[in-house]
Structure formats: structure tokens, C-alpha cells
Amino acid sequence: MEGKKAQYGLRVMLVAFALLLACNTMAEAITCNDAVSALIPCGSYLIGQGGADPSPRCCESARALNRMASTVASRRQLCECLKQTGPSFGVKPERVQHLPPFCKIDLSMPVSPDVDCSRVA
């Protein structure tokens, strides 16, 4: 029961945060709101409360997010968004690094909390 409450709480927090970001993010091909919303199915995995691997639904969502980031500007914006929001949600960097290879996502940017998003191509 505690796990379900935590997962529900995380989802509510992610949605509320996404709505706040939508009000403050400039319109681009992809917004921080889009990114946070797309990764909701990955929430419990990314904070270490899910299983050892991401769920199929998480992988589908992460692949869709990757497809949405189709321009250099959108990839840089996505990079900044995830770099800033991840720590506030308690996202574990090792979980983020495991996600692309497990879900078979070819990223054009490194997965690291120290990435310089201005250099993302």
C-alpha cells in the first residue's frame, strides 16, 4: 500500500510540476512539460522504487520523448529540463543511464548530470 501511495504521490507531483512548467516555458518543438509528462510512466523506476529494469510502458514513453526531440534546439531544451528537474524529483543518475540502452534508444546526447547542454547536437 505504501508503494502505491508513493507512486500516486509522485505522479501527482510530476503532473503539478509539469503544469507549472507549462506556464513558464517558451513554446518550442518540445516543452519541459512534454518531457516531464512523457516520463511519468518511468517515475518509480527513475527514483529507485521500481524494478531493476524499466517497464515496457516506460520504454515506450521514453522512445516517444526521444522522437519529439527532433531538432538541436529541442534536444538542448530537453537536456536542460531533465538536468534541472531530475534532482528535484530524486531521480537516480544510474537509473537514467540504464534507461537508453535497456529501451534501445539511440541518444545524440550524453546521459550525465554534468552534461553541458549547450554542446548537445
Rank of each mutant, 00 (worst) to 15 (best):
L14P: 02
G86T: 02
E28A: 15
R75I: 05
R75L: 04
Y45S: 07
N66F: 03
C117I: 08
C42L: 06
S44M: 12
S44H: 04
P54Q: 03
L39C: 02
A62W: 11
L20Y: 15
A52L: 12
V12F: 14
A35L: 12
C42F: 07
Y8V: 12
R63M: 03
P113F: 03
H98V: 07
P110L: 06
P87N: 03
A29N: 11
S112H: 00
G90M: 06
D114W: 06
R63A: 05
S88F: 13
P101I: 11
G9K: 13
I40G: 08
R119A: 14
G43L: 01
P113E: 03
E28F: 05
A62K: 06
L46N: 02
K104S: 12
N66H: 10
E60A: 15
A22F: 13
D53H: 11
A62P: 06
V96L: 14
L19H: 14
P54M: 03
V12E: 13
C79I: 02
T25S: 15
T85P: 03
S118W: 01
L65P: 01
V111C: 01
I30D: 03
S108H: 10
D53W: 08
T31M: 02
C42G: 05
G48V: 05
L65S: 02
C42M: 07
V111N: 03
L46D: 00
P113D: 02
C103R: 04
A35S: 14
Q49N: 08
C59V: 06
